[in-house]
């Protein structure tokens, strides 16, 4: 349970009307309303201000507010469109919308590209890819030799960096994903297809409020 009733969420900074959010995302109005409860719960889990702070995001993902993770940081930063260190309700809905099964293929490919462009240079560079591989190995308690890591990164670059300039641009990324569609499999959350069916408690909540 969150710290605000859905009606008082409307006084939270960054609140946006569900009808407007539904118009520009893959969600219906009732789905946006259903996501109130989840947003409310996460945004009040540590700091009861109706905004999702990074520690709250980590707590929701890992059940541990102190567990740092490079990729979770990247997702948080991309959701935090205003770059003010918190995820507001509208940002949460827009961010999650990319993961909706009905969201466009292009939006998923672009989101993944921005996710992996760690330093926001407009390219995925070799050092960034190596940093991500190292982060994944660390997270997974996997130990590979330095030579093997270099080999994995080199091999990937030789396949993806088709013009051989040492960085992967968006066109090269699109081409690489088209040959390896599993790369964006995690950009789709089947849960989001029917939130109201998957989370009937959300429906009951929003129906009660609609009838008030």
């Amino acid at each position: 349970m969150g710290c605000f009733a859905s009606k008082s969420l409307k006084r939270v900074p960054g609140y946006e009307e569900p009808t407007l959010l539904a118009a520009e995302t893959a969600f219906s109005v009732s789905e946006v309303e259903a996501l109130f409860e989840l947003f409310n719960k996460i945004s009040c889990s540590i700091i009861r201000d109706g905004l999702i702070h990074k520690e709250e995001f980590q707590l929701a993902l890992f059940r541990n507010q102190k567990r740092r993770n490079l990729f979770a940081d990247r997702v948080f930063d991309l959701f935090d469109y205003k770059r003010n260190g918190v995820i507001e309700f509208g940002e949460f809905i827009r961010g999650l919308s990319v993961f909706h099964p009905n969201a466009s293929y292009d939006s998923k490919v672009s989101f993944a590209y921005r996710l992996y462009d760690l330093r926001n240079t407009g390219f995925i560079e070799r050092e960034e890819l190596k940093e991500m591989v190292l982060a994944l190995l660390h997270e997974s308690d996997l130990v590979l030799s330095e030579d093997l890591i270099e080999l994995i990164v080199d091999k990937t670059f030789s396949e993806a960096d088709s013009n051989g300039d040492g960085k992967i641009d968006l066109e090269e990324w699109k081409e690489f994903v088209s040959k390896n569609p599993s790369l964006i499999r995690n950009m789709t959350l089947p849960y989001l297809k029917d939130i109201t069916g998957a989370f009937p408690s959300f429906v009951e909540q929003s129906e009660v409020e609609e009838s008030e």
């Binding site: 993770n69 990729f71 997702v75 994944l136 690489f176």
Partner: peptide
């Protein structure tokens, strides 16, 4: 699959930090 049979992006796409489905687990 072994890390050695995957390309680097397939490897990193398995990160738990990218599994937003866990946001929906009660």
């Amino acid at each position: 699959a072994s890390p050695l049979t995957m390309n680097a992006f397939q490897l990193i796409s398995t990160s738990q930090g990218l599994n937003l489905g866990s946001l929906f687990e009660k």
